[in-house]
Write a protein that binds this DNA or RNA. Sequence first.
DNA 1: CCGCCAAAGCTACGTTCATTAGCTTTAAAG
DNA 2: CTTTAAAGCTAATGAACGTAGCTTTGGCGG
Lengths: 193, 193
Amino acid sequence: MSPRAGLTTGAVVDLALKIVDQAGPDALTLAKVAERAKVAAPSLYKHVKNLADLRRLIDLRVVQEMAETLTQAATGREGADAVRAVADAYRDYLRRHPHRTGALTTAPDESDTELSKATHAVAEVVFAVLRPYGFDHAQAVHATRCLRAAVHGFAGLEASGGFGRPEDVDQSFEVLKTMLVQGLTTYSEQEKK
Amino acid sequence: MSPRAGLTTGAVVDLALKIVDQAGPDALTLAKVAERAKVAAPSLYKHVKNLADLRRLIDLRVVQEMAETLTQAATGREGADAVRAVADAYRDYLRRHPHRTGALTTAPDESDTELSKATHAVAEVVFAVLRPYGFDHAQAVHATRCLRAAVHGFAGLEASGGFGRPEDVDQSFEVLKTMLVQGLTTYSEQEKK
DNA sequence: CCGCCAAAGCTACGTTCATTAGCTTTAAAG
DNA sequence: CTTTAAAGCTAATGAACGTAGCTTTGGCGG
């Protein structure tokens, strides 16, 4: 298919993601990727437009993985059970890959169809999980934002070491989940008037 | 006091903060700061150890400002009222300075006494606000983490344009605040058994 | 009023990267 | 076996960080 088919765009993203996971997003340079790929730096431009493009590809990969992860966590569950499972999956993913937090706060950016789609997929999972609560559309939007904000905020702070000692962080997260499921229930009941 | 006293460390931080606010943290370079200060780039090293140090000074400034802002929001209020006011203040600060979100997720880093102190000051405000709920220490830690995570998560997502359309974001935040104050009340009651 | 001197600034340089231009190799297709 | 386009390479440019060492200047003691 191609000469000296050692590299592909996907392989470059793989290597870049390893660097990000090991040393953080700021440590990502094309020079380091080239070194790991055993290739001269300019050769990378055959597979990637530039550094910004590589970063975008990484974000895309991460968002897609997250969407898949959350989907799996949600399948076979419903109601509060599903909410808790999705929250756990989100947090676990960022505990496993603490340096990927930034990729999940990316602004979709209209023109980027692919990334927008992936971001939308994540929101879809949460939307689906909230269906049993019987919200109308606007309410579902509010609830989705709250859920995502709380869980992402927690996972993000934990990933960046924002909680001083890591003592009882699991328990803190239990409290958060409880607050959320209770809040969702109350919100849905109160809307029935 | 000093020759050609045009610059001080504080002034450098001021200029740097302006760049961050206008173009985001990644756009901060010593070269640009030097340009704005009308000074050759190496001259900055008389006021700042290096770029990392400048970033740290920015983080410190932001965290201190946030601590002050939250303190003011909390004074004269109590209970749910105070929680809501602090949440609003946090969000408003990040709406006013969307590019400062990263500064508020900084890991304190043991050795850095000053920054640790500032971070602690923020936590203190939240702690104080939660006092009327009568939590024991461990519970207060959990509650603080949840509150901070939810509010920071929401404000951070909003600041980075994470919510697609900005329609009714205020209302979404209202929902979040309601969830939180209700969750706190329930959490405190349930602990009394 | 004068000269000292440390702080503040400067120029010159070395290094790491990103990125472009243009050449060379190689493997796949005919 | 030849063609050819993709994949890779070397060379070169320019931005930026950071270091070394020189120069200026303004406050202070005499």
